[in-house]
Computed example of a mutant assay.
Amino acid sequence: MKKPGTRHKARKRAVDLLFEAEVKNCSPVDLIVQRRELAIGDDSVGKINDYTAQIVEGIAGDTAGVDAVISSHLKEWTLPRLPAVDRAILRLATWELFNTVDVPTMVVVDEAVELAKELSTDDSPAFINGVLGRIVLLAPQVRAALTAEQAGGSTTDSRSQES
């Protein structure tokens, strides 16, 4: 079995934080702040990877947009009807498909399916793969626009180059 990489662990932690925030009805960004503060004085609290924080903060900053994309690609389902962990995985993958130009789209989809295998129901991996298979068609245009925006100096990309 392949050992999970740093980004896989970061994604899994992001899903955990997104899920926890939804259950607690609180901000996932606030959870990151709390965990980072706790980790300072307590070694049993895992540190928050920068990529985890980037994902969670990105999703939190555009939840409505991410949810709209997911909702428009669901067939015979609504976002609120999905299991909370599946929503978190779909949010993570959708955000990553559109915002991480250094990660190949198929890696994003594969990682989401793997997370579904680890964290959700037996039917979830195929379901998530199907939804993302439709969303991934939009990714090249969105990524191209992001790259053009960054090249124009509108934003600074501080993402890690580690996959």
Rank of each mutant, 00 (worst) to 15 (best):
L138A: 05
A64E: 14
G5S: 08
D42Y: 03
K117H: 10
A64K: 12
K117R: 15
D30L: 09
R143I: 06
E114P: 08
L18T: 05
T63G: 02
K2Y: 14
I135W: 05
Y51P: 00
G5Q: 07
P4W: 15
E96H: 08
Q161P: 13
W77P: 03
D67M: 00
R35T: 07
D42R: 09
L119F: 07
D122T: 15
M106E: 12
G130M: 12
I128N: 01
A93I: 01
E57N: 00
P80R: 06
T121H: 06
F127L: 09
L74K: 06
I89E: 00
G130A: 13
K47M: 10
E118H: 09
S154C: 14
E114W: 15
I89D: 01
A10T: 10
V66M: 01
T6E: 12
G65A: 08
I128E: 02
V69W: 03
A93M: 05
S160V: 10
S124L: 03
E57L: 04
S158I: 15
L38P: 00
E96G: 09
W77F: 09
N25S: 12
D62M: 09
Q54C: 11
V29G: 02
D86I: 08
A126T: 10
I48Q: 00
W77Y: 13
W77N: 10
E111L: 11
D86A: 07
I135V: 12
